[in-house]
Computed example of a mutant assay.
Amino acid sequence: MVRFDRYMLSQLMWLFGFFALVLVAVFWINRAVRLFDRLIGDGQTALVFLEFSALGLPRLIATVLPIATFAAAIYVTNRLNNESELTVMMSTGSSPWRMARPVAVFGLISALMMSLLLHLLVPIATEQLDEREVEISQNITSRLLTEGEFLSPAPGVTFYSRTVGQDGVLHDVFLSDRRGTEERMIYTAAEAYLVRNGEGTSLIMVDGLAQRLTNDSLSLSTAKFRDFSFDITTLIRTDPQISTRIVHMTSDQLLTDWAGIAERLNTSEGAVAEELHGRFARAAFCLVTALIGFATLLVGGYSRFGVRREIVIAFLVLIALDGMRGSLSGPVLANAGLWPIMYTPAVLGGVIVCGLLWRASGGRVFRRRLRGAT
């Protein structure tokens, strides 16, 4: 029997890796298209795109992990059932409870992977991703190297360049500065260059025209220039720090002093409790996901018409259990002492699994099929 456990567990892990890889690839491609268009369109490099993609992978993997767990349990159980391996094991005296052991081990492995992601990797990656997004949003130099679009790098400032040469020269530049309350400035130039001057950045415009409109008298004055320097350092935010959020904190930081954390982050104790125990509950749900897939197909037994009905039932059960999380978060957010209800989907799923295994071990349908098989 130990050999059968190792055999079934190896099949579950192999299929789990396959489904996880496929699902991550599908979801990543769908997300990467939008991310690539946004970053490259803002003048960022391919390395920045790869960095953002890597930082988003932990959250993406955490999303597809329960789906891959359920798919692996369904596929392996169905294959063993079609090849009569489960029937043979039952005929030798192995109960459904005993045959569920490798599936439970597989579910625990999946839960440990989910725990590592939710408690450590996802918070760290999310914090780094938010910091990089702030840094990118402050990198006005790369944003100005976007041709053919009217850009607003700061409130009251509009910038446009017709083309950007391979050497970084901006051609046919338009710059409107409406930040002043007394006057408005418009600059047009044949060419422009972005030049770093120490910690500052300047836009050097060549062969252009400056127009100034006085708001009070509505008088317009113009002046031609050969070269003109416009300091864009003031358009860049000088504080690159972002405020810490609950999702940035690892679970060991959330285990104690909920009141202190809530006060420091300007939130409620219920939000801290909901975030912390939501992570534990999602990890525990991975174990339930694997066992529901196995137990549902085991109760259905063998059928020449396939197991589509059982798969649909198992999927709907998981959808219903997972959908409960949204309705349970509200009470916990209002009262941190209600955090045990966050585990309701996992506990209820465990009860359903026990009921299915009990029926498979002693139900009349299963015994009748065994007698027919002998």
Score class of each variant (00 low, 15 high):
Ala73Gln: 01
Tyr75Trp: 14
Tyr75His: 04
Tyr75Pro: 00
Tyr75Met: 13
Tyr75Ser: 12
Val76Tyr: 06
Val76Lys: 06
Val76Leu: 04
Val76Arg: 04
Val76Pro: 00
Thr77Tyr: 07
Thr77Ser: 10
Thr77Arg: 03
Asn78Phe: 00
Asn78Cys: 00
Asn78Trp: 06
Asn78His: 03
Asn78Thr: 00
Arg79Ser: 10
Arg79Asn: 08
Leu80Met: 12
Leu80Gly: 00
Asn81Tyr: 05
Asn81Lys: 10
Asn82Tyr: 14
Asn82Gly: 10
Glu83Met: 07
Ser84Asp: 04
Ser84Thr: 06
Ser84Val: 02
Glu85Arg: 13
Glu85Thr: 09
Glu85Phe: 09
Leu86Ala: 10
Leu86Ser: 12
Leu86Pro: 01
Leu86Asp: 09
Leu86His: 12
Thr87Phe: 14
Thr87Val: 15
Val88Tyr: 08
Val88Pro: 01
Val88Leu: 15
Met89Gly: 05
Met89Asn: 07
Met89Trp: 09
Met90Gly: 11
Ser91Glu: 04
Ser91Trp: 12
Ser91His: 09
Thr92Met: 14
Thr92Glu: 12
Thr92Leu: 15
Gly93Gln: 09
Gly93Asn: 11
Ser94Cys: 14
Ser95Asn: 08
Pro96Lys: 02
Pro96Val: 01
Trp97Met: 08
Trp97Phe: 15
Trp97Tyr: 14
Arg98Glu: 04
Arg98Ile: 04
Arg98Ala: 05
Arg98His: 05
Met99His: 08
Ala100Tyr: 06
Arg101Ser: 14
Arg101Val: 15
Pro102Phe: 07
Pro102Glu: 06
Val103Asn: 03
Ala104Ser: 02
Ala104Gln: 00
Val105Asn: 06
Val105Thr: 14
Phe106Arg: 08
Phe106Pro: 01
Gly107Ile: 11
Leu108Ser: 10
Ile109Met: 13
Ser110Trp: 02
Ser110Gly: 15
Ser110Cys: 12
Ser110Ala: 15
Ala111Ile: 01
Leu112Glu: 02
Leu112Gln: 00
Met113Ala: 09
Met113Leu: 13
Met114Gly: 00
Met114Trp: 07
Ser115Val: 02
Leu116Phe: 11
Leu116Thr: 10
Leu116Glu: 04
Leu117Met: 12
Leu117Asp: 06
Leu117Trp: 06
Leu117Gln: 08
Leu117Lys: 05
Leu118Gly: 05
Leu118Glu: 13
His119Leu: 15
His119Asn: 14
Leu121Asp: 03
Leu121Phe: 14
Val122Met: 09
Val122Ala: 11
Val122Asp: 07
Val122Pro: 06
Pro123Asn: 11
Pro123Leu: 10
Ile124Tyr: 06
Ile124Met: 03
Ile124Cys: 02
Thr126Ser: 11
Thr126Phe: 05
Thr126Tyr: 08
Glu127Gly: 03
Glu127Val: 01
Gln128Cys: 00
Gln128Phe: 04
Gln128Ser: 06
Leu129Ser: 13
Leu129Thr: 05
Leu129Ile: 09
Asp130Cys: 01
Glu131Tyr: 05
Glu131Phe: 03
Glu131Gly: 08
Arg132Glu: 10
Val134Tyr: 03
Glu135Lys: 12
Glu135Phe: 12
Ile136Asp: 01
Ile136Pro: 04
Ser137Asn: 15
Ser137Trp: 08
Gln138Glu: 10
Asn139Gln: 09
Asn139His: 11
Asn139Ile: 07
Thr141Glu: 15
Ser142Gly: 07
Ser142Trp: 07
Arg143Thr: 03
Arg143Leu: 10
Leu144His: 06
Leu144Lys: 04
Leu144Arg: 06
Leu144Val: 06
Leu144Glu: 06
